[in-house]
Structure formats: C-alpha cells, structure tokens
Nucleic acid binder design. Structure first.
Lengths: 242, 242
DNA sequence: AAGTGGTCTAGACCACAGG
DNA sequence: CTGTGGTCTAGACCACTTC
C-alpha cells in the first residue's frame, strides 16, 4: 500500500473509494467478498471490515449477509446534519412560558381537514385550542393541537408543566413519536385571533405546523402555532459531515 | 449475563448502561479499562469494545487514550436528526428558478450591520442584491448576499446556473463552508420591495437569513431572502435516533 | 447446501498523554 | 516510563439468504 503515515484501514478505504470513483466498480456492482479483499490487500479481514465501515458511513456501500457488499453511490454523500439534543431546542420557547387550554372539541375530518392533517377522511379527531403565555402573562402564540379522539384526554395534562403534548401522549398512551415534520410559513392574523394575541388585526405572523408520526408512519398529533412576527424567530444550525 | 437470545456485546452494553443509570458509575467517573471489563465479563476485549462503541454512539461515554473511558451522561441522549442529503433540499427552490443580480456595492460595517452579520465593526463587505425569478419570470423572492470584499467577484458567477452562492465561493476561492446557521422569521414587505415582488405593500413575508462559516468559524457569506407569504413554505423532517 | 457478512476469541504491538 | 485506548493479526463459528 502506497504512502505510509496514515492508518492501514484508512488507506484501504481511500483506495476503494478512489476505485469506485474511477468506475472500477459501478453503482449496483458487488464488491469482492471481505475474504477476497483481505487476501488481495494482504491484511486481516478485521482491517477490511474497518475500511468497509468507513466507506459505509459515507453512504457509498450497503452490506447484507449472503448478498455481499453493493456499491450505492459513486462518491461520498455530502450530508448536512442538524442535531437537536433536547426537545426544548426543537421548540425554542423560553422557560417560564406556559400553555393554557382554552377549548376542546371533537369532529370528523372532511376532505379539506383530512388533507391538511394528512389523515383519512371521516376519521374522528379532537381539537384542543390553547394559548402560550409568557411569565408576565402576555400571549406568545396561539396553538391548536389535533389528536385522534382516542387520545382526547391528553387535554387534562396540558399546561400542568412544560412537557410538550407529544411527550404527554407517549407518557399516557402506549405510543412513541419517531418522526416530526415541520412546516414554517408566514401569514396574517385574523381579527378574532389578533385580539387574543394583543396585536393589530391582519398583522404578519409566523406559522409553524408540526406533524408527529410513530414508527409505522401513523399520525399521532398535528399542531399549528401562530406567532406575531415580532415575537418569534426560528433558528437552527446545520453542519457538513465531510 | 442474564437472558440469552440477543447478542453478547449488546447485552454487555445494556448492562453497563443500566449500571450507569443506577449510579454505579456517575458522570465524570472513569469506567474500568477495557482489559478489566473483558476479564470481568469473561469475554474478549473485542467484544467489550463493540459494547463501548454502542454506548459511545448514545453519547453516554467518551474515550481517550491513556485517560480512559469517562461517563458523560447518565442516560442515552435522545437525539433528533435532520439529514439534508443535497444542498437543493436545504434551499427548496424548484428547478427552473434563477437568481438575477440587480446591483452590487461595497461598504464598511457599522455597529448595527456588524451585529446583524455577526462580524467585526469596520470590516469591508460587499452586498449583492438579487431577485429570484421562476420559469415564467414571476418573482419568487428578493435575496441580498453579503460577502467579505475579497470575494466580491462572485457576483459575476451568480445566475449563470443554479449553483448556490456559497458553492461558488468554494469553487473560486480556497474556502469551504462547514456550518450553516438559518433563521426564519416573518415580516412585512416594504413599499419599494413590494413593487419588485408584485405584491401589496406591507403584506406578510417569510424571511430567511443564512450564515455560512468555515471550520474556523469565520463568516464566508450571509444571505437574507424575503418571500411573499403565499409563495413559500419551509418544510423539514426530524427523526429520533433511539 | 453454500457462501456471505456478523460476531467473537486470544493474542500482539502501537500511539498518545500523564507522572 | 506506564497504562490507556486504537489498530491489527489469524483464526473460528454463527445467522441469514439465496440456490
């Protein structure tokens, strides 16, 4: 193996990456077995596996028993990663703010609501209308929480502490949120809502929609939050993995 | 070791995780060396290392030569991850849209601008004003791109194709963007800008600010984009790693 | 049945960071 | 110098999946 200095498995990994880039193996091709690579490079299978781990972590190969190692991409995937270590970081509401339940109601989804929620038409849901208040009792945002009617009773737990509603679902029902989808858009606050938020009617707002799904992809909760433009900015960081 | 069925290193990892949770080892404590753990569990050091890898991937321990293995957290870090596989996913502008340069100007940062950009007061920057147009030439958003004056000439490359400005910086100057910070807020479109965007003055808008930094944390570019509320929604997914 | 990757053993030497 | 984790060897058996 060429130049010394670096580590064996790193050099072998780079060598294989280069080969894939040069088209020695193309996407869909199968790499030689670990045993064959070991004898080809005159190293142990352990070292080959370390090299393949490295290549796999770059998204270039997949490995399956019996099927072998298959090329997935010609070049390392350039992935940007946002890591959110705590739920608070995702929600970004300062400590001390509280959610207060205003109203709860049941309904059957019609076409437009089903489309908005991303669920089947005619399923039974509960809508929980809430307002988030800061420590000095001034309104931060209006939040509507939609849950399947089976989870209706979460409303009695909301506002007791700062636990997000989907965590309450996990605690009180046997469900686990696996994926969250967020949509951010701008809008204008309706007259009725502007009074609750203490702003001018029709003033600009930032709207966050969050959809929570379990591992099977089933909807657990949808929430919409409307913030007066001046009171909220959503911020996040992304890092390149190179 | 308790119940069979699962794999050796997984059971050992779970055992150690439980011990840490029970307070057998506390945050800051040093775990026994790999050698000691191997003899304690009567397995090879390889198996112990597999178990420790697993625990490390959960953010519970750090490992350093000579210093040993140190407990970092009492419980597995519940991390949410957003992966953006391509730059396009981050920008989310449909294909066919183009950036058109309107104007470029140099300036020295005063206090307020330096604060907004997140750079030193008095440094020299270039502001490139652009508009993004859809295929049918209707305006999508107004984008202002700020770069250190040394990179001023990027303006001649913007709009030639759909490459984002920070990628152009990487191509034409010896810099690499490592981290992107994004801020999303709502606002109102000023009268002058509303004409360019073909909307009513003072109507609601979604504003995206992106800051690009190299590995040393130095600012490479800051861009602000203002979108009429009806024309843009920012959407992303987060997944739990359990 | 056969061949692949996944797990595991029992060693060895090296690189790094304290004392 | 010493002890730690990091790398590496040369084997072995197992689990899975396709034939």
């Amino acid at each position: 193996m060429k130049s010394a200095n670096s580590l064996l498995y790193q050099r072998i990994a780079q060598n294989l990456i280069d080969d894939i880039g040069k088209g020695v193996w193309r996407v869909g091709d199968q790499l030689p077995s670990e045993e064959q690579l070991a004898s080809r490079y005159k190293v142990s299978r352990f070292t080959i596996r370390s090299a393949l781990n490295r290549i796999q972590s770059k998204g270039m190969i997949s490995r399956r028993r019996r099927l072998g190692t298959t090329v997935q991409n010609e070049r390392p995937l350039e992935t940007m990663v946002q890591e959110v270590r705590t739920v608070d970081e995702l929600f970004q509401y300062p400590e001390g703010t509280r959610l207060k339940v205003l109203r709860a109601s049941n309904f059957s989804t019609d076409v437009s609501v089903a489309n908005f929620l991303g669920c089947a038409v005619g399923s039974k849901w509960t809508k929980i209308e809430t307002i988030r208040l800061s420590q000095n009792r001034s309104p931060v945002c209006l939040t509507e929480i939609y849950v399947p009617e089976a989870y209706k009773s979460v409303k009695d737990h909301i506002g007791k502490d700062s636990t997000p509603a989907f965590k309450l679902l996990e605690r009180h029902f046997q469900v686990v949120a696996q994926e969250i989808n967020a949509e951010i858009s701008a809008g204008n606050i309706t007259s009725a809502r502007s009074k609750q938020l203490h702003v001018e009617p029709d003033s600009a707002s930032l709207i966050l929609i969050r959809r929570y799904r379990n591992a099977a992809g089933e909807l657990l909760e949808v929430s919409t939050s409307e913030h007066p433009a001046s009171r909220f900015t959503y911020s996040f960081n992304l890092n390149y993995r190179r």
